[in-house]
């Protein structure tokens, strides 16, 4: 296990898209137990980080902190070297459920984040159409979510997340609700898009093989603390399926699984 760097020099902070310093979170109903206990963490620009851990270990809490849905009890969060509230401007958040609005056609769902930002209609339409094409749904722009399959709906959700060109992408088990085949296709497409865009990705999953296969770096949380943090040895470009067959995969997997207990 690699030591987690504690010191943050001003230089490295610039290259970091996300920095957490001694962050603690406890829920209002139960102030005694800490969901996150004095966590410090730096994530570099363009890094693909997977957060793993049992349910209740605080994975999603980290995403919610970064998205500004909750405030830390103590500690400091910096995004792009700025205060979190300022640096949060270009964050995309994707959930396990597609969260599409059923009364909007696919195209209109993708346009939604742009509407909130006040982007003019013409540009909204063009950008949404481009994103739908990129996820392979160029011909389905006028479909309502009810007429789309599970995988297609999640693709629309991916397009909706990419449409803002987020420099940080928070993903909360985005592929968990899909069947194995669809999931693999979406993972591949996602990696391809990520390679084109150079966004920082923070990816929460409780599926350990998925974390190892997709991420640059895997962080394991246990009882509110970081218990593992290391780079994955597989390099880019990669295919999630071939990673699973790599002999090094078994070693990393065994190591982390033992930590998870």
């Amino acid at each position: 296990m690699r030591a987690v760097e504690k010191e943050v020099s001003p230089d490295t902070e610039k290259a970091c898209s996300v920095v957490l310093e001694d962050v603690s979170v406890s829920f209002s109903g139960n102030p005694g137990t800490k969901v996150l206990d004095n966590i410090s963490l730096q994530i570099r620009e363009g890094e693909f980080v997977a957060l793993v851990g049992k349910s209740g270990c605080g994975k999603t809490t980290i995403l919610n902190l970064l998205a500004g849905l909750i405030e830390p009890k103590q500690g400091n969060i910096r995004i792009h070297g700025k205060e979190a509230a300022e640096g949060r401007e270009h964050i995309g958040y994707m959930f396990a459920r597609d969260c599409l609005f059923p009364w909007r056609r696919a195209q209109k769902n993708v346009e939604m984040p742009l509407e909130a930002k006040g982007v003019p209609a013409e540009e909204r339409r063009a950008r949404a159409r481009r994103e739908l094409k990129r996820v392979g749904l160029g011909n389905f722009a006028d479909y309502y979510p009810k007429s789309l399959s599970h995988g297609m709906r999640q693709r629309v959700a991916i397009a909706r997340t990419w449409v803002l060109d987020p420099d940080i992408l928070l993903m909360d088990e985005p592929f968990a609700a899909l069947d194995a085949q669809t999931r693999l296709t979406l993972e591949r497409d996602f990696l391809k898009q990520w390679a084109e865009r150079a966004s920082t990705v923070i990816f929460v999953t409780h599926d350990l093989p998925e974390a190892i296969a997709l991420a640059d770096r895997v962080i394991v949380l246990g009882k509110g603390k970081i218990i593992y943090d290391d780079k994955m040895p597989f390099g880019w470009p990669r295919d999630p399926e071939t990673v699973l067959a790599d002999p090094r995969f078994g070693k990393v997997f065994a190591e982390i699984r033992d930590l998870l207990g």
């Binding site: 459920r97 969260c99 609005f101 909007r104 509407e115 909130a116």
Partner: peptide, 28 residues
Amino acid sequence: DPDWSMLARTLNFSKRKTFFSLLLPVTW
């Protein structure tokens, strides 16, 4: 749906936008 409200929050919907783009269509 609480998930929809959460999405609206992460997308920084204004009160007005939340009313017209989420609350009203859901209530229709």
